[in-house]
Design a protein around this nucleic acid. Structure first.
Length: 602
RNA sequence: GGCUAUGUAGCUCAACUGGAUAGAGCACCUCACUACGGAUGAGGAGGUUUGGGGUUCGAAUCCCUACAUGGUCACCA
């Protein structure tokens, strides 16, 4: 069960004292297991007494009773207790919780940690696409995850830079370039009306089509498959182009710059709509040379090994891994080379950097293990502060996304579809009267994107997930729009309260009793800071998402059970309004960490 | 095959790292608006936590083993 951190940290000390008095034993905090009380039992926190039996030398029931009685006597905010099996459930006074509520309300940026001893300088890399095709569903998970983790780290008091490294060079780009050159007839985004990344992607596909035809022909002519793949003329031309690129051939470089420019324009649109941003961009065309130098000097220092054919390798067999190629025999760089260079450049750019986080799919687990290992071997102490934020692939109901089977879900199309669905549903509910169309459009965007983002982020990053379009579009139950709806609903109540001139502050006199709904809601709100911390420690937006959902759900129960505006007792009314206000604030704050904005009405 | 991750209700996911009767949503079946927003709430049904061993007061969680499903082992990125 869940451990308690903030709730009654002082309670722990009280328990220690009580045990000292009762059993004459000194126990460490770690030996005391405090956890949340489960819903079906009465109480605010629970002490597991099993581990204490050795000390108490009496039955679990008796131990719980003795400690419980002592706590009620010794601690003024402990109101009562009950013991079920080996669990001591402790309840706090209403006044304790109301005071907590007041504190939360008065706290600026409630839930966030301010900068301090624990603060680090962190660079979070995410997205990092190739420039030969448009972004797809997989990139969406990557982008949302990286963005959200960066925001969560900021909320934990760290200084964060979001970056990406753009894979703008290599054979894949040359394929698009070559196909465009040969078959494009000068087509541009302007002339075709196609988004830049889509246009370039089209020629990448075109290359692949021609290539396949040539391979088939060569095999027909008696070549083996391997020979055919290597000897196809279009592929040889592409390789030639790559060599020219590395040799700074003016014409090739110009075409390269033009086509990449188209792609960046397209990407920017996608990023914009997705709501993600970057503080700094790295380009592999700028870092691969640093990587090469690094590798060369590694050879000189005897860390790396140069073979007869001129290729350079790192021997990792002592670490239980293979030999790893770092530079081809023709002297060109591979992926690893570039990554070495990029990492070094980042630490040069930001010398006080404490941590480098790579948001990359788990298909590259091995790659990063090797990368960090080699960086360490090359003498960079910061290698141990590199972290691969690995996440699972996104599957479709039909299985894996496969470009050759045309099952790739395009990022732009998907967003468009989500927003269109949000629009259709909103219109069906017919609650938008009086909303100007501009406002309505912004709302559909908010809801559609909210549904998508929440759907992708609520799942534990390291698990692979299934993306079912039909389900993601659903806006009931555990979904983004459900939480957005709850927020809008609260805002509606608050507006009415304000219009009526109601008091939005707690009464100065102590409140003697609160009901179960109020109590559990306050308790939940009180857990927001530790939730933010946990999500930061675990690099997991899912923890925030699940919390936001639980909070919204709990509020809806409260809303259903407890009248607010029509409550006659003014103090009770004020209490409920404060709870409502804080809930809407925390919902908005938590969702913001996921990159989701919430509406005031919907 | 080696390494690695995952396996929880029909489906999609939780379970805060060893604690109480394993929880939600979707789908299915009931019920609740002259009330502050029904994109809601209350309830029902649905589980041998992949199988088998072990560790201990206590296991979905840790260990061993078998099985299943991904990923990865390129002079690709």
């Amino acid at each position: 069960m869940q451990k308690i951190q903030h709730v009654a940290a002082t309670l722990l000390q009280s328990i220690q004292r009580v045990i000292q008095q009762l059993y004459n034993a000194n126990l460490h905090e770690e030996q005391l297991q405090l956890q949340k009380t489960r819903k079906e039992f009465e109480g605010d926190v629970t002490l597991v007494v099993f581990p204490l039996l050795r000390t108490s030398k009496v039955s679990p029931e008796e131990t719980g009773k003795q400690i419980g009685e002592a706590l009620v006597a010794a601690v003024d905010y402990v109101e009562s207790f009950n013991v079920v099996k080996g669990f001591l459930n402790v309840s706090f006074t209403a006044n304790y919780w109301v005071e907590k509520l007041g504190e939360m309300q008065a706290t600026e940026n409630y839930g966030f940690r301010s900068k301090g001893e624990h603060s680090r300088n962190v660079m979070v890399e995410y997205s990092s696409p190739n420039t030969n095709k448009p972004l797809h569903l997989g990139h969406i998970r990557n982008n949302l995850l990286g963005y959200s983790v960066a925001e969560i780290l900021k909320a934990n008091g760290h200084t964060v830079q979001k970056v990406q490294v753009i894979n703008d060079r290599g054979i894949h780009i040359c394929k698009s370039m070559l196909a465009w050159q040969k078959f494009g007839n000068g087509e541009t985004p302007q002339s075709s009306g196609l988004k830049g990344d889509k246009l370039v992607g089209k020629y990448y596909v075109e290359f692949d089509k021609r290539y396949k035809v040539q391979i088939a022909e060569l095999i027909e002519a008696g070549k083996t498959e391997k020979e055919a793949e290597a000897e196809a003329s279009i592929m040889m031309e592409a390789r030639e182009m790559l060599l020219k690129w590395e040799a700074d051939d003016v014409e090739v470089r110009q075409l390269w710059a033009t086509m990449n420019g188209w792609v960046y324009e397209g990407f920017d649109q996608t990023y914009n709509r997705l709501g993600v941003d970057f503080d700094k961009l790295y380009y592999e065309s700028n870092t691969y040379l640093i990587g090469k130098e690094l590798v060369e000097s590694g050879v000189e220092e005897g860390i790396l090994e140069k073979r007869e054919d001129g290729s350079i390798w790192c021997d990792l067999t002592a670490d239980g891994m293979d030999q790893k190629l770092l530079l081809r025999s023709d002297g060109t760089a591979v992926y690893m080379t570039q990554d070495l260079g990029t990492a070094k450049l980042r630490y040069t750019d930001w010398p006080s950097l404490n941590q480098l986080i790579y948001t990359v799919g788990n298909e590259q687990d091995y790659h990063f293990k090797v990368l960090f290992l080699i960086l360490g071997k090359l003498g960079f102490e910061w290698a141990q502060n590199c972290y691969h934020l690995s996440y699972g692939m996104v599957d479709l109901p039909s299985g894996k996304m496969k470009s050759r089977e045309g099952t790739v879900v395009d990022a732009d199309d998907l967003m468009e579809e989500m927003v269109a669905t949000a629009k259709a549903q909103s219109e069906e509910k017919g609650k938008l009267e009086g909303m100007v169309s501009e406002e309505a459009e912004a709302l559909f965007e908010m809801l559609g994107m909210g549904a998508l983002k929440y759907f992708m982020l609520k799942v534990d990053p390291k698990k692979r997930m299934l993306f079912n379009p039909a389900e993601s579009i659903d806006m009931q139950g555990n979904t983004g729009p459900f939480i957005q709806y709850t927020h809008a609903r609260i805002k509606s109540v608050l507006r009415k309260a304000e219009d009526a001139g109601a008091r939005l502050l707690l009464a100065p006199e102590p409140i003697i009793s609160i009901n179960e709904n109020e109590r559990s809601l306050i308790r939940l709100l009180n857990q927001y800071p530790e939730t933010v911390k946990l999500a930061g420690d675990e690099y997991s937006p899912a923890i925030i998402a699940n919390y936001a959902y639980e909070l919204a759900k709990e509020y809806n129960t409260f809303y259903h059970e407890c009248p607010i505006l029509v409550e006659e007792d003014e103090n009770k009314k004020a209490l409920r309004l404060v709870i409502s206000g804080l809930t809407s604030q925390v919902i908005a704050s938590a969702m913001r960490l996921l990159g989701v904005t919430v509406p005031d009405r919907m």
